[in-house]
Each structure stands twice: as structure tokens, then as C-alpha cells.
Amino acid sequence: MGDCVKLRPEGTYAGKQGFSYFEGIAKETVGSQGVCMHLLTVPPGGRAKAHKHATHETAIYVISGAAKMYWGDRLEHCMDTVAGDMIYIPADVPHLPFNDGDEPAVAIIARTDPHEQESVVLLPELEALVP
């Protein structure tokens, strides 16, 4: 049986996607085996790099602010998100979040990959598809 661990999201790390994430629950921090969970603040004008999470699902809860998320094989879909929304992203689905608002967007992100960044696959060929 393992130990229960409590963390406070204070330190950050630079994600491949182009954002700084607050350290959270991950194999690297607490030894988790099947999940990671992080806190993300996207500043006004903040935009991630186009990416997907190979073989891992993502769940997002927007705490405050608003953002858009482009998604699909060619980032052809656009989803508006606001505080209180829960978003599900299936494994291997390309996506690109973008905060086009005037205030930071804050969200909790959970993935079925216990590593902070292992399943991130950058998709630079899709970058120019989003204005």
C-alpha cells in the first residue's frame, strides 16, 4: 500500500505545448501510476502549440476566464469554453487552446498519462491552420 500525498501547485515547469504548468499530481512528483493532474493559467493572448496526447485521454475543468480550443485532424472545429465547463479530449485528437479574452483562463487538467509530458506529440504542420 502506498502513501497518500498532498501537494500545493507552487512550482512550475515548461510544457512542450508552450505553456507553463503548475506542478501537480504526476509520476514525477508523487509516483502516480495512471493519472496526472495539473493547474494551468493561460494569459490573455496565450496560445499553445498544436499537439495531441498519444494514447491518453484528457479532461479539463475551467475554473475561471474563457478560452477557445481548436480541435480535429486539421483543427477544423472550434469550441468556446468558459468557467464551469468540463471538456473531454479523446486520445490522439489534435488540439490547440487559445485565450482570446481579456483575463487569464485558469483550468485543472487531468490525463490518463501519469507522466507530465511523455505523451505530448507536437504537430507543427497544423500551426498555420489556426488564425
Results as ranks from 00 to 15, higher is better:
residue 28 E to P: 07
residue 99 N to W: 02
residue 114 P to W: 07
residue 54 A to I: 09
residue 19 F to C: 02
residue 85 D to F: 02
residue 95 H to F: 03
residue 49 K to C: 06
residue 53 H to F: 07
residue 116 E to G: 05
residue 15 G to M: 12
residue 75 L to T: 03
residue 111 R to H: 09
residue 51 H to L: 12
residue 69 M to R: 06
residue 79 M to N: 11
residue 91 A to Y: 04
residue 34 G to N: 13
residue 123 L to Q: 11
residue 55 T to I: 03
residue 85 D to C: 12
residue 75 L to S: 10
residue 38 H to M: 11
residue 3 D to V: 09
residue 76 E to F: 08
residue 68 K to I: 04
residue 66 A to C: 06
residue 110 A to T: 10
residue 120 V to P: 04
residue 45 G to F: 08
residue 83 A to R: 09
residue 107 A to E: 00
residue 62 V to L: 14
residue 72 G to M: 12
residue 69 M to Q: 08
residue 90 P to R: 08
residue 33 Q to L: 13
residue 30 V to G: 10
residue 51 H to F: 09
residue 126 L to T: 02
residue 121 V to Y: 10
residue 58 T to D: 07
residue 92 D to A: 14
residue 97 P to Q: 04
residue 51 H to Y: 08
residue 55 T to D: 15
residue 126 L to G: 00
residue 49 K to M: 09
residue 118 E to N: 13
residue 105 A to D: 01
residue 1 M to Y: 07
residue 54 A to W: 04
residue 100 D to L: 12
residue 21 Y to T: 00
residue 32 S to A: 15
residue 92 D to E: 06
residue 3 D to P: 07
residue 12 T to M: 15
residue 101 G to Y: 01
residue 41 T to R: 01
residue 37 M to L: 13
residue 109 I to V: 15
residue 115 H to K: 07
residue 130 V to E: 01
residue 63 I to H: 05
residue 88 Y to S: 09
residue 17 Q to I: 14
residue 84 G to Y: 04
residue 87 I to T: 04
residue 124 P to G: 08
residue 116 E to K: 07
residue 115 H to A: 10
residue 67 A to D: 06
residue 90 P to A: 13
residue 124 P to Y: 04
residue 83 A to W: 02
residue 69 M to L: 10
residue 40 L to C: 10
residue 63 I to C: 03
residue 56 H to D: 13
residue 22 F to L: 12
residue 79 M to S: 11
residue 128 A to R: 10
residue 16 K to F: 04
residue 102 D to H: 03
residue 49 K to F: 10
residue 48 A to L: 12
residue 119 S to H: 05
residue 108 I to G: 11
residue 57 E to M: 13
residue 59 A to Q: 03
residue 1 M to G: 13
residue 90 P to G: 14
residue 74 R to G: 05
residue 46 G to V: 01
residue 122 L to I: 03
residue 3 D to R: 12
residue 123 L to S: 11
residue 78 C to A: 14
residue 102 D to K: 05
residue 44 P to R: 05
residue 48 A to R: 03
residue 130 V to K: 08
residue 78 C to G: 04
residue 70 Y to I: 03
residue 124 P to R: 09
residue 11 G to E: 15
residue 1 M to N: 07
residue 8 R to G: 07
residue 42 V to M: 15
residue 104 P to S: 10
residue 77 H to A: 09
residue 18 G to L: 12
residue 50 A to G: 04
residue 104 P to V: 01
residue 105 A to K: 06
residue 40 L to Y: 00
residue 17 Q to P: 00
residue 86 M to C: 15
residue 24 G to Y: 01
residue 26 A to G: 06
residue 94 P to T: 05
residue 52 K to F: 01
residue 25 I to Y: 02
residue 32 S to H: 07
residue 60 I to D: 08
residue 123 L to Y: 08
residue 78 C to K: 10
residue 30 V to A: 13
residue 78 C to R: 12
residue 9 P to K: 00
residue 84 G to Q: 09
residue 73 D to K: 04
